[in-house]
């Protein structure tokens, strides 16, 4: 059984207008997505900004009110508040935020910040708690003298590691990492990512890794879902997505990864333009008449794409993939 099963999750925000302020329409931030996260794996959720990937992450951790659909954890639907409370759900599912500064309370000392989930879920004695906080700081590579300092006294990378320490404090099974490194510069990104991988190896944590950076996702994730306008357009293993992309949106995202090989500059430019041309010419083929993605169709045991069945098969055979 999967660790988390997300079934047809929808998060819609009402738009109110008119004299009576009635609900006239809704923004479909997340519009019917389905996927499973296995224990111990890193699941990548990729998409442009506004595609609903952060909303999905917040729904999984219980911060967002879900319109319909279900998220199953241990067979219980945790979109309901009382189920979350009964399971002590957030002891097992934690979150790392994008903005490390605003996610740490500026008026609290590091000890209190990291100890917060411990105080709510574990009720340790004072000495045990302090010891646990020191061990956590040690695991993320910070010195003990951070204990009584405030968040603004640390650099971005250090702060993000404090965020990681807080998330792993209760030894959770799943951590939602919402663009954990996109606010950091490249050398620090690598440092934080490697810490996250190390912690995953040592504690057997699963990640739901939300990012728009395909380079980072390739480094971190085994399974990847691509999101566009609130729907999933492609699901597959790293191999499927990077080597056999089927949906035009995925191809565009991949084409947008910067290449450092200057000698091939002209060739890269040509391939980017070619992808863009296909997108402009064949948009109607890839999206339905409302401009939304189609339902997912399976093309191989691991690989699904949001296209009408006939087109999906045709593209898959072009890519030379083995049919399921």
């Amino acid at each position: 059984m999967s660790l988390i099963e997300i079934k047809d999750l929808k998060v819609h925000y009402p738009i109110r207008s008119g004299f009576w302020n009635r609900v006239t329409d809704s923004v479909k931030a997340v519009d019917g997505i389905t996927f499973n996260i296995e224990a111990g794996e890193t699941y990548g959720l990729v998409g442009e900004s506004g595609s609903g990937k952060s909303t999905t992450g917040k729904s999984v951790v219980g911060l967002e009110k879900v319109t319909s659909g279900s998220i199953l954890y241990n067979g219980k639907d945790i979109t309901k508040k009382e189920n979350r409370r009964k399971l002590d759900y957030n002891r097992d599912v934690q979150m790392i935020f994008q903005d490390s500064l605003s996610s740490l309370n500026p008026r609290k000392r590091i000890e209190d910040i990291i100890a917060e989930p411990l105080r709510n879920f574990e009720h340790l004695s004072k000495d045990d708690e302090k010891l646990r906080v020191l061990q956590l700081l040690n695991i993320v590579g910070l010195d003990a003298d951070a204990l009584y300092k405030y968040p603004h006294q640390f650099s971005g990378g250090q702060r993000q590691r404090i965020g990681v320490a807080r998330a792993v404090a209760t030894n959770p099974k799943l951590i939602i990492a919402d663009e954990p490194v996109s606010a950091l510069d490249l050398s620090v990104q690598a440092q934080v990512l490697n810490f996250m991988k190390k912690i995953q190896r040592e504690f057997g944590i699963s990640y739901l890794f939300i990012s728009h950076d395909l380079g980072v996702v390739r480094h971190m994730c085994n399974n990847i879902a691509i999101m566009n306008r609130g729907r999933l357009v492609e699901i597959g293993t790293r191999e499927d997505i990077y080597n056999h992309p089927l949906h035009i949106y995925t191809k565009r995202l991949l084409a947008a990864i910067p290449e450092t090989n200057v000698n091939q500059r002209a060739a890269h430019r040509a391939s980017r333009l070619a992808v863009e041309k296909i997108y402009e010419d064949q948009q109607s083929k890839y999206y339905d008449e409302d401009g939304m993605a189609y339902p997912l169709v399976q093309v191989s045991p691991t690989h699904s794409v949001a296209l009408p069945e006939a087109i999906a098969k045709q593209l898959a055979s072009q890519e030379g993939e083995v049919q399921a």
Binding site: R109, D127, K130, L131, R132, L134, Q135, L136, N138, I139, A144, D145, A146, L147, Y148, K149, Y150, Q153, N171, E202, F203
Partner: peptide, 24 residues
């Protein structure tokens, strides 16, 4: 946590003192 960190209960007092010296 004990396994993956080389800090144990014995270090607690010393480290706490160090941290106190650096406190804001």
């Amino acid at each position: 946590f004990e396994q993956h960190s080389d800090i144990s209960a014995a270090d607690l007092a010393r480290l706490n003192q160090e941290a106190q010296a650096e406190a804001t």
